[in-house]
Amino acid sequence: MDTRMWWLFGGVAGLLLLASVTGVVLSYRVTTEAGRETVANLKARIKAWWVMVALFALAFAFGKVVTLVMFALVSFYCLREFLSLTPARPSDHGAIAAAFYLFIPLQYFLVGVEWVSMLTIAIPVYAFLLLPVLSVLRGETDDFLLRASKIQWGLMLTVFCISHAPALLILEFEDYDSAFLLFFLVTVVQLSDVLQYVFGKLYGKRKIAPGVSPSKTVEGFVGGGLAATVVGALLWWITPFSFLGAAALSFVIVISGFLGGLVLSAVKRSLGAKDWGTMIAGHGGALDRMDSVTFAAPVFFHFVRYFHT
């Protein structure tokens, strides 16, 4: 691993240390019951962040194959959460099995062998057509469109979209290691989530979409989004872009990430759940942490590909 990458992860660890210390200080200062609950949740979130950052660093240290396997596992758990919330009929069993056992490995294999044209159509074209075929052969027509779309949505969001994050590794630039591009995307999108949460807790008043996501506020979105854009711009030196280019792309990541969070929140609520799962203490499920990545990754991937290669 590049020494600059060690410095970057060192910086992230420093930020987490600061967050952990803040958590401890806050837990001594809160007095109300609601405040205690918020701080307990905050501490659980920070603890989970340590684990997630460590896993991410490990993947980077071992290179492309391990990173792909790790993202494939993330897709696997996200799809498991998605389909666990959408009750299926026994007739959909074949389609679900194909989604897990055929299309997850296939998609990450295509990323691994750098077959870009195929990785962008395998799921939107072939899975899109094949999955309803597998269900229709069982002959059950009740809610057919609804059942087919649930599986297709799940596969698109959790496998197709998320796979575009590690797909950044296969973009080629002169004298540039695209691992930094993946670091840039994940840092900006997650920092945007975290800063929107922090700004929302500190200054949040006007809710953006109370019915969809009660924790999203105008103040949180504007403050957190701007701060994340600034941090992204300041990271221009790890990207192949200029300062303004990095700022613009950070803005794109922030906006698409925000919209992803909003849409997935609506999907989740339409399925009658508050969290996608219970896998990550304090955060909810894996998909609660990846929701903004699902939108940000493919958009960022194609912007970079269009403008810079």
Partner: peptide, 17 residues
């Protein structure tokens, strides 16, 4: 949820929480 993971009549379990 187990009837989702391996319904009666299927042989291959699928990942469902």
């Amino acid at each position: 949820n187990l009837r989702q993971a391996l319904p009666k009549g299927s042989l291959l379990p699928v990942p469902i929480s």
